[in-house]
Design a protein around this nucleic acid. Structure first.
Lengths: 343, 343
DNA sequence: TTCTCTACTGTGAACGCTCACAGAAGCACC
DNA sequence: GGTGCTTCTGTGAGCGTTCACAGTAGAGAA
């Protein structure tokens, strides 16, 4: 029935047109549009018919001007774009956030701000009020963008723990330290004693916490920390490969490697295979994330599962709460050890 | 100097506050904001100082309400999300579109509408006027979303030729048919005569045109078309692998395969290797796209380069022109044969 | 002087919507 | 018959901008 303005040139109908068509006032149409409370069934019906007939779509600019809301959420990624495409975690996180927002009928806008220039443009867009809140993903979590948005009063939830101690910013994260503890305990239970680690970047809480969990369990077990058994990478596959090579050179007697991400673990497996070490016979390998990278690896990776679906759901919940005026909060979710063939 | 509203609770300053602070009228502030023509240097200066002092940011909702513009562009992808992450072409297309828009200081909003539900939500968001125009990427190019947006009068440029014949919708595409011709001529020049093809989906113009180019060159060379040498896939790696296996079964005497995408070609190479065929000695393999998949393949793929940077630039140019009231138009760009190790 | 032109500035009226308020109608209760 | 309550409806104001228009001042030409 939307036979009009096929060319797209004519002005779209306004709430006024709908009101006239339905024989009611603007107020009544507005009430129907926003939930339909205190509207008689007859009026309800008439308005809906008029909307169908005119092909009316609400002008969100006009609405936002009054309400101060845009009813949309931004998913902001400040990583370089290649990382976004390389790391399967983003895929999972993105689709589960989309799903969580779908329950509230809110569209998700993806914003890739890998370059400085783009970061500026996107920040301006956000602070102009085009989205009600932001789900922020960035591994460098002392991110200036986060600070800028927070200062501008934009509701914000970060994925992963931020670096600074007392920053009043919401975040949702898996319990990195506890996950690391589980993995190292598992490796110990297999009889391994020369357990190496490829950690994440040490300027991020995720990198620091996983390493801390590793050291804690070893110390508790009476095993001295050997710095030759520790290197760090940046979560990319290539850095995992390089890290494992370094470990093999520094500590050829290692009998297990705990790698702080599945993608890095893939690289490490490649390096071990090249060095002639059999996994899991000679060396046990543990990953972190439980992304598809863990399943695609040969052998399939034993890893620590990050509950991405729950993380997304919590991020959305916290963000919406904050949009409604609640205070920032932190949520830490438990991880789970997933045993496969690499240990 | 933006010391105010750190908590984000106080109302942001309006153009009125700036005007008062600078001792001028709203009109003058507005003029400074929009290019600064017909404003005295003194007023210019005063307004800029007032903006800095108050931390004023223009309210885009109010602006958009009047101008009918939002100064942002949507990049809409109606593919399933996995495909987006798998196919390196999207990465390239996306970043070059971002770059092309950056020249106009326009932010790009990425919208992934893989599911029907999400498609509805995003379509509503777009038709409500939240973006000025849409760059649409979808291989199923008779896409109902395109039709809906066109009907709603939203400026739209599609990447790749749309399916329907006379639809008045803008698009930018590489010359698929000509690219295919180049590749098949190249294979012929190497002395190959049993040239097989893994085409794209035959319900898309890209799939059809590349196949047409293949048939045309063979026919011109006096070689009869053998249907056993032709299968089709969906551009994914897996479908390329399956396609090559089918070809090997149907026509074991093939001496070349032209695969309609690099990603599928990767799969085909895997299948050929498993069957013990050496590339390029026993079988020459040609791809299409020249994405990173072509370089990552072993051996490196000879392929047809799609000029993604030019495609993006043209998409943006055509879209902006259309936003400014110009008529839809089609742009076809030439491809280029890139010789590497697989032929 | 007077007129015209240019450079600049201020003002009211929109843009399309929501929100608060006032008012009407119907019903029940004392 | 008044009073209070609930359900529904219409109206005016206002959100923060831009835009068209009117108006001022100064320079140069007649």
């Amino acid at each position: 029935m939307t036979m009009n303005n096929a060319g797209g040139r004519r002005k779209p109908p306004t709430i006024h047109d709908v009101a006239r068509e339905a024989g009611v006032s603007r107020g009544t149409v507005s009430r129907v549009l926003n939930g339909g409370h205190y509207v008689s069934p007859a009026a309800q019906e008439a308005v809906n018919a008029a909307i169908r007939k005119t092909g009316y779509v609400v002008n969100r600019h006009a609405r936002s001007l009054i309400t101060g809301r845009s009813d949309s959420i931004g998913f902001l990624l400040t990583e370089p774009q290649e990382r976004f495409f390389e790391d399967p975690n983003f895929n999972v996180l993105l689709s589960s956030c989309t799903q969580a927002l779908a329950a509230h009928d809110i569209p998700l806008l993806l914003m890739l701000a890998g370059t400085k220039d783009e970061r500026r443009r996107i920040t301006r867009y956000i602070t102009a009020g085009h989205v009600d809140g932001v789900l922020l993903v960035s591994s460098h979590s002392g991110d200036p963008v986060a600070e800028e948005l927070r200062e501008a009063g934009v509701p914000l939830v970060q994925c992963g723990k931020p670096m600074g101690p007392g920053a009043r910013v919401s975040y949702v994260a898996a319990d990195d330290r506890d996950g690391a503890r589980d993995m190292v305990r598992h490796l110990l239970s297999l009889g391994r004693r020369r357990i190496a680690m490829v950690s994440g970047p040490l300027d991020t809480p995720g990198g620091v916490d996983r390493l801390a969990g590793y050291k804690e369990v070893l110390t508790d077990a009476g095993i001295a920390i050997d710095e030759r058994l520790i290197v760090s990478g940046d979560y990319s596959r290539a850095s995992g490969e390089a890290g494992a090579e370094r470990l093999l050179a520094q500590a050829p007697d290692l009998d297990a490697v705990f790698v702080a991400s599945d993608l890095m673990a893939q690289g490490a497996l490649a390096a071990l295979a090249r060095a002639g070490r059999r996994v899991p016979e000679d060396v046990s390998v543990g990953g972190f994330d439980d992304s598809v990278a863990a399943l695609e690896a040969t052998p399939a990776l034993t890893t620590i599962r990050q509950p991405y679906d729950r993380i997304s759901a919590e991020m959305v919940r916290v963000l919406l709460a904050q949009i409604n005026g609640e205070d920032p909060m932190a949520v830490i979710l438990p991880t789970e050890l997933v045993k496969r063939d690499s240990t």
